[in-house]
């Protein structure tokens, strides 16, 4: 059961809930207008209801297929750990943007992922991070004048 909840069935279950909720909310927008014309809630209702039905059918199929997915079994736990580590670092980089600015946060991300997750040489990882930061600064900030967030440090946002 735990496997089922973690697997494809959970995705379809989530879609059933999401689509049913969106279809339910659509009544509040007005499904039809005067003269029976299509209203703002019509397409959300029809597509939401249709998706709920299709997702329920897919959910049933997944549950009946009960056997664990071979691909799920084949996943290397170390790689799965790496995946969520990178995902977590990405989240940290995004949360750091208001503090350090965009360029510093993402420069640190490149360095940390290359050096500590992918175990590349520290000097090479630092070189790649600096080069990437400079190129992004040149292309986006200087050439395209994109005002990247400079954060509290005020670095690299003078687009």
């Amino acid at each position: 059961m735990r496997r089922l909840l973690r697997g494809e069935a959970a995705v379809w279950g989530l879609l059933v809930c999401l689509s049913a909720a969106m279809a339910g909310v659509s009544f509040g927008y007005g499904v039809t207008r005067e003269g029976g014309q299509v209203g703002p809630g019509f397409l959300p209702l029809v597509s939401g209801a249709a998706l709920a039905v299709i997702s329920a059918a897919c959910l049933l199929r997944s549950v009946r297929r009960a056997a664990p997915e071979p691909e799920e079994e084949a996943a290397d736990p170390r790689r799965v750990r790496t995946l969520w580590t990178v995902f977590g670092m990405l989240l940290v980089a995004l949360l750091l943007v208001p503090l350090t600015g965009f360029l510093v946060a993402f420069g640190l991300l490149v360095f940390a992922v290359s050096a500590f997750v992918e175990k590349q040489r520290i000097v090479s990882a630092a070189g790649v991070a600096v080069a990437a930061t400079v190129v992004i600064y040149a292309v986006f900030v200087l050439f395209l004048t994109v005002p990247l967030p400079a954060g509290l440090l005020g670095v690299g946002g003078d687009g």
């Binding site: 995004l94 993402f106 994109v146």
Partner: peptide
């Protein structure tokens, strides 16, 4: 190992 952090950064920027 070098490529994907760069893809992530360019995608976000």
């Amino acid at each position: 190992g070098y490529m994907y952090p760069l893809i992530l950064v360019t995608s976000f920027v």
